[in-house]
Write a protein that binds this DNA or RNA. Structure first.
Lengths: 183, 183
DNA sequence: TTGTTTATACAGTAAAAACTGTACAAACTT
DNA sequence: AAGTTTGTACAGTTTTTACTGTATAAACAA
């Protein structure tokens, strides 16, 4: 095996690992391979390049590069004279992790907050209604307590996402460089 | 609409929200509904109870309750005289989040670490080989640099998971109760 | 032991998701 | 303007995943 082949093998191994783990980002192995391919290319790639590299349809390349962009794992690049859209991986993996975390959870937090508030409102009214049985009232109060707990939890989660977005998390868990710098 | 119905509606709304968001845990909406149902039941449920409540096959209940247990969202309960397996939701959502985080990422971190180490080993040998062209050597060195970066990133992620597991994260982002206590 | 109850393995089916090829719209070129 | 080039919407197909029903193993009861 010559050197070029060996380099290729080393890359393939990494790309396959990315493909096998990208489900944590809610993406398919194909999108992972696409990401991996871009990762090892120093120049940005066009959709046609990706079609060429991965042997998949251009339509597929288009949809999955959009999925990668939505999660901010990939960004568009510009190169004068090139009409095709160019894409490259974002090189700050720490920021990519934060973006993922934020995108995935914020939406969920917001949905929960809304429904919980709505249900709590109803239940509070119901609990105050004098015409209901004691039995029901007890059940309502238990539900209110549970929802308050969940509400607090999501409020915590929201602050957690803040801590990532504001990079406060690096105070608690510093990057390697920062440790060396005694930061 | 009477009080009982209203309570039921409130619960259904929450359960549906759980179902719509549980994909963040890599689970299906059905598993989410199962979780939600258990959440509002104060007593632990059997597989037959769940079949009854959700109108799905017992086989399904069995597989998805296992998925919920694997992520530590649900645990087995014991009640004397009851032969059937009993399940209930774990009531500490903060801990559940930490468990999820840990289970999902540790595995990935470990896989990456192994493959990166393997590839770095090969590439370092290759870079030291005097018979390769300058051109190839440059590519090898660029790959080495990239992999070192990724290695550092995963080492950081590993420490991040530690910070969650060790509950250090609550120092940075305190629970609501702890704020009030001035902790 | 034999009979009963309960959970799950497995094969088959139904539903969902990923992928492809064609068609077309938008942007650019001449 | 007409002719290219490029990206994506959409319909159809393939592949994968979720779910069901039957069969069986394990645990318990008599």
């Amino acid at each position: 095996m010559d050197g070029k082949e060996q380099l290729e093998k080393s890359r393939e191994r990494i790309i396959e690992t990315i493909a096998q783990n990208i489900h944590l980002y809610g993406l398919t192995p194909s999108a992972g391979r696409q990401y991996g391919t871009m990762f090892f290319h120093d120049d940005p790639l066009t959709l046609d390049d990706m079609t060429e590299e991965l042997g998949m349809s251009k339509t597929s390349m288009s949809t999955s590069v959009r999925a990668l962009s939505d999660l901010k794992l990939v960004e568009r690049a510009w190169k004068r004279g090139v009409r095709k859209d160019l894409y490259q991986v974002k090189d700050d993996w720490y920021q990519s992790f934060i973006d993922l975390f934020s995108i995935k959870w914020r939406r969920s937090i917001s949905l929960y907050s809304t429904t919980i508030r709505k249900s709590l409102n109803e239940l509070n009214k119901l609990a105050a209604d004098p015409s209901i049985t004691d039995d029901l009232k007890l059940m309502v109060e238990r539900d209110i307590e549970k929802l308050r707990y969940v509400q607090d939890y999501y409020e915590w989660l929201d602050r957690l996402v803040d801590a990532f977005e504001d990079h406060d998390i690096f105070d608690l868990v510093p990057r390697k460089d920062d440790i060396q710098e005694g930061k």
